[in-house]
Design a binder for these strands. Structure first.
Lengths: 148, 148
DNA sequence: TTTGAAAGTATTTAGGA
DNA sequence: TCCTAAATACTTTCAAA
Protein backbone atom coordinates (compact mmCIF):
# COMPACT_ATOMS: atom_id res chain seq x y z
CA UNK A 1 0.00 0.00 0.00
CA UNK A 2 2.74 2.48 0.90
CA UNK A 3 6.13 1.94 -0.65
CA UNK A 4 9.47 3.50 -0.06
CA UNK A 5 8.99 6.41 -2.43
CA UNK A 6 5.71 7.26 -0.71
CA UNK A 7 7.53 7.28 2.60
CA UNK A 8 10.23 9.57 1.26
CA UNK A 9 7.60 11.96 -0.04
CA UNK A 10 5.77 11.90 3.30
CA UNK A 11 8.98 12.50 5.20
CA UNK A 12 9.76 15.49 3.00
CA UNK A 13 6.31 17.03 3.29
CA UNK A 14 5.84 16.25 6.96
CA UNK A 15 8.81 18.44 7.79
CA UNK A 16 7.83 21.15 5.33
CA UNK A 17 4.46 20.91 3.67
CA UNK A 18 5.28 23.72 1.26
CA UNK A 19 8.27 22.10 -0.36
CA UNK A 20 7.87 21.80 -4.11
CA UNK A 21 7.16 18.48 -5.76
CA UNK A 22 9.92 19.36 -8.21
CA UNK A 23 12.52 19.47 -5.47
CA UNK A 24 11.29 16.28 -3.81
CA UNK A 25 11.30 14.59 -7.23
CA UNK A 26 14.90 15.56 -7.85
CA UNK A 27 16.01 14.27 -4.47
CA UNK A 28 14.46 10.92 -5.17
CA UNK A 29 15.41 10.53 -8.81
CA UNK A 30 11.87 10.57 -10.19
CA UNK A 31 9.88 13.06 -12.23
CA UNK A 32 7.73 15.79 -10.68
CA UNK A 33 4.72 14.14 -12.29
CA UNK A 34 5.36 11.00 -10.29
CA UNK A 35 5.50 12.89 -7.02
CA UNK A 36 2.25 14.55 -7.98
CA UNK A 37 0.60 11.21 -8.77
CA UNK A 38 1.81 9.67 -5.51
CA UNK A 39 0.60 12.58 -3.39
CA UNK A 40 -2.83 12.49 -5.06
CA UNK A 41 -3.08 8.78 -4.38
CA UNK A 42 -2.17 9.22 -0.73
CA UNK A 43 -4.77 11.97 -0.44
CA UNK A 44 -7.43 9.75 -1.96
CA UNK A 45 -6.55 6.78 0.19
CA UNK A 46 -6.71 8.96 3.29
CA UNK A 47 -3.07 8.70 4.30
CA UNK A 48 -2.64 12.43 3.75
CA UNK A 49 -5.42 14.35 5.46
CA UNK A 50 -4.24 17.90 4.95
CA UNK A 51 -1.48 20.38 5.59
CA UNK A 52 -1.29 22.77 8.47
CA UNK A 53 0.70 25.91 8.94
CA UNK A 54 2.54 25.79 12.22
CA UNK A 55 2.39 28.96 14.25
CA UNK A 56 3.96 29.97 17.51
CA UNK A 57 0.93 30.14 19.80
CA UNK A 58 2.76 32.40 22.26
CA UNK A 59 3.33 34.99 19.58
CA UNK A 60 -0.38 34.97 18.89
CA UNK A 61 -0.95 35.73 22.55
CA UNK A 62 -1.75 32.24 23.78
CA UNK A 63 0.57 32.04 26.74
CA UNK A 64 -1.05 29.16 28.57
CA UNK A 65 -1.37 25.59 27.38
CA UNK A 66 -2.89 23.03 29.63
CA UNK A 67 -4.41 19.61 29.78
CA UNK A 68 -7.62 18.89 31.59
CA UNK A 69 -8.70 15.41 32.62
CA UNK A 70 -12.47 15.18 32.80
CA UNK A 71 -14.50 12.75 34.89
CA UNK A 72 -18.10 12.42 33.73
CA UNK A 73 -21.19 11.80 35.84
CA UNK A 74 -21.89 8.74 33.71
CA UNK A 75 -19.91 7.10 30.94
CA UNK A 76 -22.91 7.48 28.61
CA UNK A 77 -22.71 11.26 28.89
CA UNK A 78 -19.72 11.30 26.59
CA UNK A 79 -21.39 12.51 23.36
CA UNK A 80 -23.23 15.37 25.06
CA UNK A 81 -20.20 16.52 26.99
CA UNK A 82 -18.08 16.37 23.87
CA UNK A 83 -20.52 18.49 21.89
CA UNK A 84 -20.43 21.15 24.59
CA UNK A 85 -16.63 21.11 24.65
CA UNK A 86 -16.48 21.40 20.89
CA UNK A 87 -18.33 24.70 21.13
CA UNK A 88 -15.40 26.17 23.10
CA UNK A 89 -12.70 27.33 20.66
CA UNK A 90 -10.08 27.22 23.42
CA UNK A 91 -10.38 23.42 23.42
CA UNK A 92 -7.95 22.47 20.66
CA UNK A 93 -7.80 18.72 21.23
CA UNK A 94 -10.03 16.15 22.84
CA UNK A 95 -9.30 12.49 23.44
CA UNK A 96 -11.64 9.81 24.60
CA UNK A 97 -9.54 7.82 27.00
CA UNK A 98 -9.42 4.79 29.24
CA UNK A 99 -8.26 5.16 32.81
CA UNK A 100 -9.16 7.69 35.43
CA UNK A 101 -10.58 10.21 32.95
CA UNK A 102 -13.24 9.76 30.31
CA UNK A 103 -12.22 12.78 28.28
CA UNK A 104 -8.87 14.39 28.16
CA UNK A 105 -8.57 17.81 26.52
CA UNK A 106 -5.89 20.26 25.55
CA UNK A 107 -6.74 23.90 26.07
CA UNK A 108 -4.94 27.03 24.89
CA UNK A 109 -5.75 30.38 26.45
CA UNK A 110 -4.23 33.84 26.70
CA UNK A 111 -3.64 33.92 30.45
CA UNK A 112 -4.12 32.11 33.73
CA UNK A 113 -7.09 34.38 34.33
CA UNK A 114 -8.66 33.23 31.10
CA UNK A 115 -7.98 29.64 32.10
CA UNK A 116 -9.72 30.14 35.41
CA UNK A 117 -12.72 31.75 33.77
CA UNK A 118 -12.89 29.02 31.14
CA UNK A 119 -12.72 26.30 33.75
CA UNK A 120 -15.21 27.77 36.17
CA UNK A 121 -17.65 29.48 33.83
CA UNK A 122 -17.61 27.26 30.76
CA UNK A 123 -16.32 23.80 31.60
CA UNK A 124 -17.28 22.99 35.16
CA UNK A 125 -20.82 24.19 34.49
CA UNK A 126 -21.34 21.44 31.92
CA UNK A 127 -23.96 19.17 33.54
CA UNK A 128 -22.42 15.93 32.36
CA UNK A 129 -19.05 16.75 33.94
CA UNK A 130 -18.50 15.58 37.48
CA UNK A 131 -14.98 16.88 38.09
CA UNK A 132 -11.78 17.98 36.37
CA UNK A 133 -8.05 17.86 36.97
CA UNK A 134 -5.83 20.49 35.42
CA UNK A 135 -2.23 20.15 34.35
CA UNK A 136 -0.53 23.34 33.27
CA UNK A 137 2.21 23.07 30.66
CA UNK A 138 5.19 25.36 31.12
CA UNK A 139 7.14 24.19 28.09
CA UNK A 140 6.70 21.96 25.09
CA UNK A 141 10.25 20.76 24.45
CA UNK A 142 9.34 17.89 22.08
CA UNK A 143 6.84 18.25 19.26
CA UNK A 144 7.24 16.11 16.17
CA UNK A 145 5.60 13.62 13.88
CA UNK A 146 5.53 9.86 13.81
CA UNK A 147 7.93 8.18 11.41
CA UNK A 148 6.13 7.25 8.22
CA UNK B 1 2.59 43.61 15.02
CA UNK B 2 -0.06 41.39 13.44
CA UNK B 3 -2.85 43.10 11.59
CA UNK B 4 -6.06 41.87 10.14
CA UNK B 5 -4.63 40.84 6.79
CA UNK B 6 -1.97 38.79 8.57
CA UNK B 7 -4.71 37.06 10.52
CA UNK B 8 -6.65 36.28 7.36
CA UNK B 9 -3.54 34.82 5.78
CA UNK B 10 -2.84 32.73 8.86
CA UNK B 11 -6.41 31.50 8.98
CA UNK B 12 -6.20 30.45 5.34
CA UNK B 13 -2.88 28.65 5.68
CA UNK B 14 -3.61 27.10 9.05
CA UNK B 15 -6.46 25.15 7.49
CA UNK B 16 -4.54 24.34 4.34
CA UNK B 17 -0.87 25.14 4.22
CA UNK B 18 -0.66 24.38 0.49
CA UNK B 19 -3.18 26.95 -0.64
CA UNK B 20 -1.70 29.33 -3.15
CA UNK B 21 -0.81 32.87 -2.22
CA UNK B 22 -2.58 33.93 -5.41
CA UNK B 23 -5.88 32.52 -4.19
CA UNK B 24 -5.51 33.99 -0.71
CA UNK B 25 -4.61 37.32 -2.28
CA UNK B 26 -7.75 37.32 -4.39
CA UNK B 27 -9.97 36.51 -1.41
CA UNK B 28 -8.57 39.44 0.48
CA UNK B 29 -8.38 41.97 -2.31
CA UNK B 30 -4.61 42.31 -2.33
CA UNK B 31 -1.88 41.26 -4.73
CA UNK B 32 -0.08 37.92 -4.52
CA UNK B 33 3.13 39.84 -3.87
CA UNK B 34 1.63 41.32 -0.73
CA UNK B 35 0.68 37.91 0.61
CA UNK B 36 4.20 36.75 -0.12
CA UNK B 37 5.73 39.70 1.73
CA UNK B 38 3.42 39.19 4.72
CA UNK B 39 4.21 35.49 4.98
CA UNK B 40 7.95 36.16 4.80
CA UNK B 41 7.64 38.74 7.56
CA UNK B 42 5.69 36.37 9.76
CA UNK B 43 8.32 33.69 9.18
CA UNK B 44 11.09 36.06 10.13
CA UNK B 45 9.33 37.32 13.22
CA UNK B 46 8.71 33.75 14.33
CA UNK B 47 4.92 33.78 14.14
CA UNK B 48 5.03 31.14 11.41
CA UNK B 49 7.31 28.31 12.42
CA UNK B 50 6.71 25.89 9.56
CA UNK B 51 4.15 23.84 7.70
CA UNK B 52 3.34 20.25 8.40
CA UNK B 53 1.64 17.67 6.30
CA UNK B 54 -1.10 16.01 8.27
CA UNK B 55 -1.23 12.27 7.99
CA UNK B 56 -3.61 9.69 9.34
CA UNK B 57 -1.42 7.91 11.90
CA UNK B 58 -3.66 4.83 11.87
CA UNK B 59 -3.11 4.38 8.15
CA UNK B 60 0.61 4.46 8.78
CA UNK B 61 0.11 1.64 11.25
CA UNK B 62 0.15 3.64 14.47
CA UNK B 63 -2.97 2.29 16.11
CA UNK B 64 -2.29 3.34 19.66
CA UNK B 65 -2.00 6.88 20.97
CA UNK B 66 -1.48 7.47 24.62
CA UNK B 67 -0.44 9.98 27.20
CA UNK B 68 2.01 9.17 29.95
CA UNK B 69 2.39 11.24 33.09
CA UNK B 70 5.90 10.96 34.48
CA UNK B 71 6.97 11.48 38.07
CA UNK B 72 10.70 12.09 38.47
CA UNK B 73 12.95 11.04 41.32
CA UNK B 74 13.92 14.69 41.73
CA UNK B 75 12.70 17.84 40.02
CA UNK B 76 16.26 18.61 38.93
CA UNK B 77 16.39 15.42 36.87
CA UNK B 78 14.23 17.03 34.22
CA UNK B 79 16.90 17.80 31.58
CA UNK B 80 18.43 14.33 31.72
CA UNK B 81 15.10 12.55 31.61
CA UNK B 82 13.99 14.73 28.72
CA UNK B 83 17.10 13.96 26.70
CA UNK B 84 16.48 10.24 27.13
CA UNK B 85 12.85 10.60 26.08
CA UNK B 86 13.85 12.61 23.03
CA UNK B 87 15.87 9.64 21.84
CA UNK B 88 12.66 7.59 21.58
CA UNK B 89 10.93 8.34 18.26
CA UNK B 90 7.62 7.07 19.63
CA UNK B 91 7.52 10.08 21.94
CA UNK B 92 5.92 12.70 19.70
CA UNK B 93 5.22 15.39 22.30
CA UNK B 94 6.62 16.28 25.69
CA UNK B 95 5.38 18.92 28.08
CA UNK B 96 7.00 20.16 31.22
CA UNK B 97 4.08 20.54 33.60
CA UNK B 98 3.00 21.68 37.03
CA UNK B 99 0.89 19.41 39.15
CA UNK B 100 1.21 15.74 39.89
CA UNK B 101 3.55 15.04 36.96
CA UNK B 102 6.81 16.69 36.01
CA UNK B 103 6.75 15.57 32.41
CA UNK B 104 3.75 14.68 30.38
CA UNK B 105 4.31 12.95 27.04
CA UNK B 106 2.30 11.80 24.07
CA UNK B 107 3.31 8.50 22.57
CA UNK B 108 2.29 6.86 19.30
CA UNK B 109 2.93 3.16 18.77
CA UNK B 110 1.78 0.39 16.47
CA UNK B 111 0.10 -1.81 19.06
CA UNK B 112 -0.60 -2.33 22.73
CA UNK B 113 2.27 -4.81 22.74
CA UNK B 114 4.60 -2.13 21.45
CA UNK B 115 3.31 0.23 24.12
CA UNK B 116 4.02 -2.30 26.82
CA UNK B 117 7.53 -2.90 25.54
CA UNK B 118 8.19 0.83 25.20
CA UNK B 119 6.98 1.48 28.73
CA UNK B 120 8.78 -1.37 30.41
CA UNK B 121 11.96 -1.61 28.37
CA UNK B 122 12.60 1.98 27.34
CA UNK B 123 10.77 4.39 29.63
CA UNK B 124 10.55 2.84 33.08
CA UNK B 125 14.25 1.93 32.91
CA UNK B 126 15.22 5.59 32.75
CA UNK B 127 16.99 6.20 36.07
CA UNK B 128 15.55 9.64 36.65
CA UNK B 129 11.97 8.39 36.35
CA UNK B 130 10.29 7.31 39.54
CA UNK B 131 6.89 6.25 38.20
CA UNK B 132 4.47 6.68 35.32
CA UNK B 133 0.72 6.79 34.73
CA UNK B 134 -0.65 5.81 31.36
CA UNK B 135 -3.79 7.08 29.69
CA UNK B 136 -4.77 5.33 26.48
CA UNK B 137 -6.62 7.35 23.86
CA UNK B 138 -9.38 5.54 21.99
CA UNK B 139 -10.45 8.45 19.83
CA UNK B 140 -9.37 11.98 19.03
CA UNK B 141 -12.67 13.66 18.20
CA UNK B 142 -11.40 17.27 18.38
CA UNK B 143 -8.14 18.39 16.79
CA UNK B 144 -7.80 21.96 15.62
CA UNK B 145 -5.79 25.14 15.84
CA UNK B 146 -6.08 28.17 18.02
CA UNK B 147 -7.78 31.20 16.50
CA UNK B 148 -5.16 33.62 15.17
C1' DT C 1 3.09 3.30 -13.16
C1' DT C 2 6.17 6.35 -14.95
C1' DT C 3 7.54 9.82 -18.05
C1' DG C 4 8.43 14.01 -21.12
C1' DA C 5 6.35 17.79 -23.01
C1' DA C 6 2.94 21.35 -23.10
C1' DA C 7 -0.28 24.30 -21.04
C1' DG C 8 -1.73 26.60 -17.25
C1' DT C 9 -0.58 28.65 -12.69
C1' DA C 10 2.09 30.38 -9.06
C1' DT C 11 6.05 32.57 -6.90
C1' DT C 12 9.24 35.97 -6.51
C1' DT C 13 11.83 40.05 -7.68
C1' DA C 14 12.24 44.84 -8.82
C1' DG C 15 10.85 49.51 -9.99
C1' DG C 16 7.56 52.95 -9.36
C1' DA C 17 3.23 55.08 -7.11
C1' DT D 1 3.77 49.70 2.25
C1' DC D 2 1.56 48.17 -1.81
C1' DC D 3 1.14 47.50 -6.61
C1' DT D 4 2.08 46.06 -11.58
C1' DA D 5 4.79 43.66 -14.58
C1' DA D 6 8.21 40.44 -15.93
C1' DA D 7 11.07 36.49 -15.24
C1' DT D 8 11.48 32.20 -13.26
C1' DA D 9 9.71 28.15 -11.40
C1' DC D 10 6.14 24.92 -10.30
C1' DT D 11 1.98 22.04 -11.07
C1' DT D 12 -0.91 19.43 -13.61
C1' DT D 13 -2.61 17.06 -17.61
C1' DC D 14 -2.12 13.80 -21.16
C1' DA D 15 -0.47 10.62 -24.54
C1' DA D 16 2.97 7.23 -25.02
C1' DA D 17 6.25 3.80 -23.30
Amino acid sequence: MIDNLDKMILRALMTNARRSYAEIAKENGVSPATVHVRVEKMKQSGVITGAQLQVDAKRLGYDVTCFIGIILQQAGDYPKALAKLEALPEVTEAFYTTGQYSIFIKVMVRSIDDLQRLLIERIQVIDEIQSTDTLISLQNPISRDVEP
